[in-house]
Amino acid sequence: MKKMFVCTFAILCLSANMTAQITKDVRKERQEMRKASKSELNEKASKDARKEAKKLTKEGWVTVPGALPLEKQLDKSYMMQTEYDEDMYPKYLMGEAMSIGENYDAAKMQALELAKQNLAGLIQTEVTALVENSVANKQLGAEEAASLTQSIMGAKNLISQSIGRTIIVMECYRVKSNKNKEVLVRIAYNGAMAKAAAKRAVQDELKDKSEEIHKKLDKILGW
């Protein structure tokens, strides 16, 4: 009984430490983004951002009151898409979607849900690429890689459900001829958290597989 209590206590402590570390990482990331956002307000948007913003404006897209100008939102999106970690894995993954509704809030909620599905598909692609690379590096055999890839491709809905809070980096809308609102959103998700979401989903798909392949999945995802 005492040994069981000690083990349970250790597991709870480990879980608490992991949760605290994730919370700390998210807070640090958002503080850095906030600091960067303040400095970016005083800088001119990139040529590509200004060009795309001009195109979208001609198509009738506008930002909500109080939001950053469209070219600034696009600029931030471009910069986040070019950031990579030391393993050349994207620091942020992006999902984008549009939706139409009678009112703005309903259209935005639907667009966010579709963007999350889009993001889940991108996570699938990135994690599959890591698996394929592991074969080239001889971390996995072809048969093991095929099993993992199959599990990843079958886990899109589970990955979507495992995605935590995302960052809206772009949000605009336009009014259709029937007065409905069409909302366009682009969301970002921390790359490390994206791998964690994929891991949780794939582990569920691999629950009947050997412990060895679970360990290799951990290694591939950098855990």
Rank of each mutant, 00 (worst) to 15 (best):
G154T: 03
Q161E: 14
M153Y: 15
V183E: 11
A194Y: 03
A155L: 06
L184V: 10
V175E: 10
G191N: 05
G191R: 03
N178M: 07
G164S: 04
S162N: 10
N180D: 12
K156M: 11
V185D: 09
A192Y: 06
A188N: 06
N157C: 02
K181T: 15
Y189P: 09
K176T: 11
M170S: 12
V202H: 00
A188D: 10
G191Y: 03
A196S: 13
I163H: 01
V183I: 15
M170W: 01
G154C: 01
Y173E: 12
T149Q: 00
V175T: 15
A197C: 04
A201H: 03
E182S: 06
T149P: 00
A155E: 04
L184M: 08
K199H: 14
Q161V: 13
S160K: 12
K181H: 15
A192I: 06
S151W: 00
A196W: 03
A192R: 08
G191K: 02
A194M: 05
E171F: 03
Q150R: 07
K176S: 12
V169E: 08
K181R: 14
K156V: 15
Q161T: 12
N180I: 05
A196F: 08
E171K: 08
I168E: 12
R165L: 14
V169H: 05
V202C: 00
R186I: 15
A196H: 09
Y173G: 04
M193D: 15
Q150I: 07
V183T: 13
K179P: 04
L148F: 05
A192V: 07
L158H: 04
T149E: 00
M193I: 09
A198P: 11
A188F: 08
I187H: 11
V183A: 11
N190C: 05
Q161N: 10
S160C: 13
T149M: 01
R200K: 15
S162E: 08
A194K: 02
G154S: 09
G164F: 04
S160L: 06
M170G: 07
G154E: 02
K179F: 14
K181A: 12
A197K: 04
A188E: 08
M193F: 12
N180M: 09
K195G: 01
K181S: 13
R174L: 14
R186H: 08
Q150T: 14
I187A: 07
V175R: 09
A197N: 04
I167F: 06
M153E: 12
A194E: 03
A196C: 04
K156I: 14
A198H: 10
A196R: 15
R200V: 08
L158V: 00
K195M: 03
R186W: 12
V175P: 05
V183F: 09
G154R: 01
K156A: 12
A198S: 14
V175I: 14
V185F: 04
I159S: 01
C172K: 11
N180S: 11
A188M: 07
V183R: 07
R174M: 11
I167R: 05
K195H: 02
L148I: 05
A155S: 13
M193V: 11
K199L: 09
S160Y: 06
S160W: 02
N180P: 07
R174F: 14
Q150W: 06
G191A: 04
S151M: 01
S177L: 12
K179L: 12
Q150H: 06
I159M: 05
Y173C: 03
I159F: 02
V183Q: 11
G154L: 03
S177R: 07
N157R: 05
S151Q: 01
N180H: 10
S151Y: 01
A194W: 02
T166H: 10
